[in-house]
């Protein structure tokens, strides 16, 4: 069984090596990363409706459920891009580790790279952990099986009055910030949109884009915890 998996794995790796190479693999990361970023934006727009009150917020999931086919299409696309992104991340990371097995005695001193750019894999792993927790928490509502009649709005209020959940959400959003603040300009570079003088501006834009998205996401649990949004 294990040898079968290994042989399939090595076949896939050879295929990637001969057809798309490390440059093409990075292009896949950039394209899937861009799709995930689009999702992050759309999801944020949905969440922002919390500020419009209970009725509007509660009607949003119903609105989505009125279009079951597009909803499932979007879900499958999302799962597919997420898995491709992660597989490519792990694939490249493994190759990159092999390209310098014997390390320097003194660690290299970074003079041009950002912290975010050096920790993409780790911020990515925090995002996976968060996504799983988020699904368990608000999609499958596993912590709230005792009261199944809770509407989504009340569920949000009950959850984020809990400081532990709020803190975990904030930490996860900070790693999303790290990931996006580098990811945005990195994807632009990989998709070669930075061949002109705009490179510096794209980097700056990516940083502020990530910053604003993160602040807006964080604002939700914080507003609930601080009772700005209430029952």
């Amino acid at each position: 069984m294990i040898t079968l998996i290994e042989s399939i794995e090595s076949k896939i790796c050879t295929l990637i090596e001969s057809k798309i190479s490390i440059v093409g693999s990075k292009v896949i990361m950039a394209l899937t990363g861009a799709c995930l970023t689009m999702f992050i934006l759309i999801h944020l727009l949905g969440n922002m409706q919390l500020y419009a009150g209970r009725d509007i917020f509660n009607s949003y999931p119903e609105l989505l459920r009125n279009f079951p086919i597009s909803l499932w299409f979007a879900r499958i696309l999302l799962i597919f891009t997420f898995i491709s992104h992660i597989s490519m991340a792990v694939y490249l990371e493994r190759k990159n580790k092999l390209s310098r097995i014997i390390q320097y005695n003194n660690e290299l001193i970074p003079i041009g790279s950002s912290f975010a750019s050096r920790t993409m894999l780790y911020s990515g792993f925090v995002i996976i952990a968060f996504v799983l927790f988020h699904l368990i928490h608000l999609t499958w509502k596993c912590f709230y099986v005792q009261n199944p009649n809770l509407d989504l709005y009340s569920l949000m209020i009950v959850s984020f009055r809990n400081p532990f959940i709020t803190i975990f959400y904030i930490l996860a959003q900070i790693s999303l910030f790290l990931h996006l603040s580098h990811g945005f300009s990195s994807a632009a570079q990989t998709l070669s949109l930075t061949r002109n003088k705009l490179a510096k501006n794209i980097r700056l834009f990516g940083f502020w884009f990530a910053f604003i998205v993160t602040i807006l996401y964080i604002s939700i649990p914080v507003s609930i915890l601080l009772r700005v949004i209430h029952d």
Binding site: I22, V23, S25, K26, L92, K95, N96, L98, S99, R100, L108, P110, I111, G112, S113, S114, S117, R118, M120, H182, S185, S186, Q189, T190
Partner: peptide, 13 residues
């Protein structure tokens, strides 16, 4: 056996 680019910009520095 060279690795892939993570766009960290360390090289240009």
């Amino acid at each position: 056996g060279f690795g892939s680019c993570s766009n960290t910009l360390e090289c240009e520095a």
